[in-house]
Design a protein around this nucleic acid. Sequence first.
DNA 1: TAGAAGGACACGG
DNA 2: CCGTGTCCTTCTA
Length: 187
Amino acid sequence: MDGIALVALTEEEFNRRAPQAGSTLYAQLEIWKAARHETWRPAPWSEQEQTSPKPAPPGLPSADDMSDDEDSESVSASAAGAGSGVSAGGKAKSGSTHIHLWQFLKELLASPQVHGSAIRWLDRSNGVFKIEDSVRVARLWGKRKNRPAMNYDKLSRSIRQYYKKGIMKKTERSQRLVYQFCHPYCL
DNA sequence: TAGAAGGACACGG
DNA sequence: CCGTGTCCTTCTA
């Protein structure tokens, strides 16, 4: 299967081909789709280029916190590629059902020019990252989940649950605000 | 003092 | 039922 066909697969089709990992793989594909037009060189399989102007460079010298509203992440790539319309209903649900915290963190990590001052990779190949601004990351997470009372204490508790689940692991010599993804999740 | 670790329970899709 | 969200205690840099 080539990239065009892969990108056209629905979550249900992923689950059919890989019942134990379909949702995870599909969620990862969504992250790549969302991060496709970044500082990365456009991959040879990316066809459509958005000529939309960039919103604005990260405004550093702002005294108070700015009202950052960058939600428009509807990856509705309605690809008319491989004829595999197994999805019956046709509900154009943008994105996955409910984003998981680890997916959200990777989403932020995929846009360093937007969130690099809040969260960034320390060792990308090993999945090590650092939260530079815990308040801001927690606020963004709360906004995404519609949880106004979210804070870093609660967010970090959820991250710690990932240790038992094998999604993240403790770094060798632990530093504050530094976490590490486990193997498939850091890709 | 902020964060790390993790138990306990609530909640909601 | 699972993935948190919430709250709390204890420990540590």
